[in-house]
Design a protein around this nucleic acid. Structure first.
Lengths: 348, 348
DNA sequence: CAAGGTGAGTTTACCGGTAAACTTCGCAGC
DNA sequence: GCTGCGAAGTTTACCGGTAAACTCACCTTG
């Protein structure tokens, strides 16, 4: 039987509220009494006010929940997600908020249950599929929720939303290639819908796209390139997932001279595969990524990519959640092309 | 005023317990009534049982707290901490536990308050200075706590502990260099005590070491090398922190032929500085790290290092905390030298 | 000297649930 | 026809706090 606040109060002959105040509102009692109470508490083995009980009556948990699309371990392995989390952590720290990473839907854990019962004051939903059970459960709770990137709000005001100018960034990247003279260009996308489907994308498949970010970036590429580019779905976001696609696109009957990868991770995969196949980048092949994760500056050669402010996005998300910043509906942060060394005019 | 469980019960003329059971124990009531209750709840805008209230009476939070030595953002930037977190996340997910990252002591946040009030069922303390206020507060709570690496238990049973064979690993690394013929060897350590002191370490400073891991690894190095090696304190753990030290050691009057870095991050810094200064590794200089983070395999040339099972450590920590694994007091996981390409006999 | 303030506690009223023990009722077994 | 029993609910007793309103003695202040 744990010692409670009332036990301490009884032992000292004071009211339990006074003991509570000794912990939470030192100014409400004399210093002398406060020391006496704290001393007695220590002696009696009282652990201090129970956080759960305090949280219940205060109606706050002191933590922010972060929801990812997949496994937590996967999210931590993704440089973009990680950088975002950096921003969240930094901002959360400033508000003395802990960060609660919710278990993803993949593993044994039940993502819905987790989101329904998580002890948090708000949710940050990072790039999650529209039907994600955890997301659905989180939405039902009446604590603030901000969606980052994905899913896009169907009506514009279903939930607070924070994204970047995916379409504009993609257009910039495509424009850069066209300006360099490229005509045979391929687009690499991780996924168009949840699942691990891979291979070239036809019109029908393209129309079935559910991921909003993929849709926007593709729209951006196509706004410059029209229908010409081959689009290839990789079935996953890691560099390894890009290898088969890169191999096919570089060694096929009509090899491309440039690849627009929808993420830096995929771009890294392309770079690696190109090196293995003996292609020179950017001599034989140009590559552009998207995100500008820290690794992008360290690839060989350094990756030309579209920079989005990932860490800032994390900071913004927290600020929107805590009300420190008002979000215009559907806010989108700017992006810009960072020209490094993986792009050049096509051979000949 | 939010709708409560009792409101729903009243509206349907059933007992509030029955409504509670509709959510938590479906088998305790008929399917028909359950659907009726869930439907009414939906209609009335009831959000489901309040997690805080449920947590209070159940005496559990459904989350594990993770405590780092510094800023959260810093911890997320450290590959070793991150890999550890991977393991924790994986294991936590299997137990349907959320991961609560506590704000560190650096930023505005009060680490003690955070640890005292965190809504968690247990603490994982990762490599934290002995006097860390958050750690002290966490210890006072009567929920399980497992310390990883740091601080070492003064008496062996003050808290559950999980570490690795730092001393043995360091000895292996030193032995490898000696076997190759190296005699002028320097040791790079991030810190001996909290703070950012940097420079060569004299006997007095060495004796003042408070970080247990540093102490153990140094002991391991010195068990092979004796008092001969120069020890240099970098004042921090990032690759950048290693640069001044490397510069001094390589360009001084009596340049070393090998560096034992206490972490891979420092080793990476040495590699980088050596390259800048035109030293060939391993021709002119041998370097050994410690940890074997993923980056270690990708340095140029790939880093010889002492591998410790970081992710497994995370898994173990969770298992110990949840009681799925019994920890022998002061358990230490094995390490082993991974010989890659940064070590060779000294020049001439 | 009465009115008003302030410091230091106390009283009272929740916060929103869950679990264990208990009641009822229909039905199978002997 | 009596006993036993499981299913389906209900009753009762907490869980461990916090906040707002109130009391009361002691000071100021005009």
């Amino acid at each position: 039987m744990a010692v409670t606040l009332r036990d301490v109060a009884k032992a000292l002959g004071v009211s339990h509220t006074t003991v509570s105040n000794a912990y939470n509102r030192p100014e409400k009692l004399s210093d002398h009494l406060r020391q006496k109470i704290l001393g007695a508490a220590e002696r009696m083995g009282y652990q201090g006010p129970d956080p759960l009980a305090a949280g219940l009556v205060r109606r706050q948990a002191g933590a922010l929940g972060v929801l990812f699309d997949e496994d937590l371990a996967y999210a931590l392995a993704d440089p973009a997600a990680l950088l975002f989390l950096h921003g969240v952590a930094r901002a959360g720290q400033d508000s003395a908020l802990a960060l609660t990473l919710l278990p993803g839907p993949r593993a044994g854990g039940d993502a819905e249950l987790a989101a329904r019962t998580a002890l948090v004051d708000g949710f940050i939903v990072y790039s999650v599929a529209a039907g994600h059970p955890g997301f659905l459960a989180a939405r039902r709770r009446d604590i603030p929720l901000v969606v980052v990137d994905e899913p896009a709000p169907p009506h514009g005001d279903d939930w607070m939303y924070l994204g970047v100018d995916d379409r504009g960034g993609a257009a910039q990247a495509a424009r850069h290639l066209v300006d360099l003279g490229h005509r045979r260009i391929a687009v690499l996308v991780d996924r168009l819908t949840p699942g691990d489907r891979q291979g070239p994308v036809d019109t029908e498949r393209l129309a079935a796209t559910t991921y909003q970010v993929a849709r926007e970036r593709l729209a951006g590429y196509r706004s410059v390139l029209g229908d010409t580019p081959v689009i290839w779905e990789c079935g996953g976001g890691s560099p390894e997932h890009a290898a088969p696609a890169a191999r096919a696109l570089l060694t096929g009957t009509d090899p491309v001279t440039a690849v627009l990868a929808m993420t830096d991770e995929l771009a890294r995969g392309v770079l690696r595969t190109a090196a293995v196949l003996g292609f020179d980048v950017p001599g034989d092949l140009s590559v552009i990524g998207f995100d500008d994760v820290p690794e992008a500056a360290r690839t060989d050669p350094p990756l030309t990519t579209v920079r989005q402010p990932l860490a800032d996005k994390g900071v913004h998300a927290v600020e929107i959640l805590t009300g420190a910043r008002t979000s215009e509906p559907g806010e989108r942060l700017p992006v810009r092309l960072v020209t490094r060394a993986t792009t050049a005019p096509p051979p000949d």
